[in-house]
């Protein structure tokens, strides 16, 4: 029974035996919600993600995944994580997402092809199936990888740094696409990023990691400039004229300065 939640974590510690990476993680992931997982490089985002996906056990605490089902996760890796030496077509890539849904041994190619085409159409790339994946632009590659994840008909879509390496226009196109897919398909989503700007407008829940701990957990709209200054101990490049002095009115969606430039510790401004 999903209990209306995909996952519930209580005081979870993630990492490797003898080497905890993040401690004290408590959050809920309601079905249909979007969770932003934000932190600088090396902050434990990937380790926490792997634990959330059941790929490695938590070291301590309790993690329940009532919404999880076999094959119910669509995973979009970081750009550059896939070897581009091989001449995979866009359709080849998307068909990989079907591998768990169909027989390991055999399946009519027409079915695979039709389902891959449907997934490509969902991301606006219906006419690109026969192109080579490695020849696409960064933004199109990410959309193909989203299509690949969608082909498995997931309940949960996990995106690891989806906007890394993309320019502003490509990032905006991709994030709008993700919003639409979530709305239309009722997907639960986890968006991992070191760029706060990417998650502010596109997630409901936020988990901010800093120095091995959860520095902020809660609704994204409740994150304030004061929170950020407290966490990072530096001035944040946000126009505070509109926000006042950090009253909990939220910064998501209203502040253009933050949307343009805020990067969580160690990253580069986009």
């Amino acid at each position: 029974m999903s209990d209306g939640r995909w996952a519930v974590a209580h005081e979870v510690t993630v990492g490797y035996p003898g080497n905890p990476v993040v401690e004290g993680v408590t959050f809920e992931l309601p079905l249909g919600s979007a969770l932003g997982l934000v932190g600088p490089n090396g902050s434990g985002k990937t380790t926490l993600l792997r634990t959330l996906l059941g790929l490695q056990p938590p070291l301590a605490g309790r993690l329940d995944r009532p919404g999880a089902r076999p094959g119910g996760v669509g995973y979009v890796p970081q750009q550059g994580a896939l070897d581009e030496l091989f001449p995979f077509t866009v359709r080849d890539m998307v068909e990989m997402g079907l591998a768990a849904r169909h027989s390991a041994w055999w399946g009519p190619s027409a079915v695979w092809s039709r389902e891959a085409q449907e997934a490509l159409a969902a991301v606006g790339l219906a006419d690109q199936g026969s192109r080579l994946f490695r020849e696409l632009s960064g933004g199109m590659k990410q959309r193909v990888l989203v299509a690949r994840a969608l082909a498995g008909r997931p309940d949960l879509l996990v995106l690891d740094e989806p906007t890394r390496g993309l320019d502003l226009a490509q990032s905006a196109t991709l994030l709008r696409l993700l919003d639409r897919l979530r709305r239309d398909r009722g997907l639960t989503m986890v968006l991992v990023s070191h760029v706060l700007r990417d998650v502010m407008e596109h997630t409901d829940q936020l988990l901010l990691l800093h120095e091995g701990r959860v520095a902020f957990a809660g609704p994204t709209r409740r994150l304030t400039v004061h929170d950020l200054q407290r966490i990072y101990g530096v001035e944040i490049s946000v126009s505070t004229a509109d926000l006042g002095t950090g009253e909990p009115q939220g910064i998501g969606g209203n502040d253009p300065g933050l949307r343009r430039g805020a990067v969580v510790g160690g990253g580069e401004p986009a």
């Binding site: 996906l53 790929l55 076999p70 094959g71 996760v73 669509g74 995973y75 890796p77 994580a81 896939l82 070897d83 091989f86 995979f88 068909e95 990989m96 997402g97 079907l98 591998a99 768990a100 390991a104 041994w105 055999w106 690949r148 498995g152 996990v158």
Partner: peptide, 22 residues
């Protein structure tokens, strides 16, 4: 050859294969 689709996925992107439950 018959298993090629899964073998190619596992070879190219084992992380995704694992998340799919393969």
């Amino acid at each position: 050859f018959l298993l090629r689709r899964r073998l190619v996925l596992i070879s190219l992107d084992p992380e995704m294969a694992r998340t799919l439950g393969i």
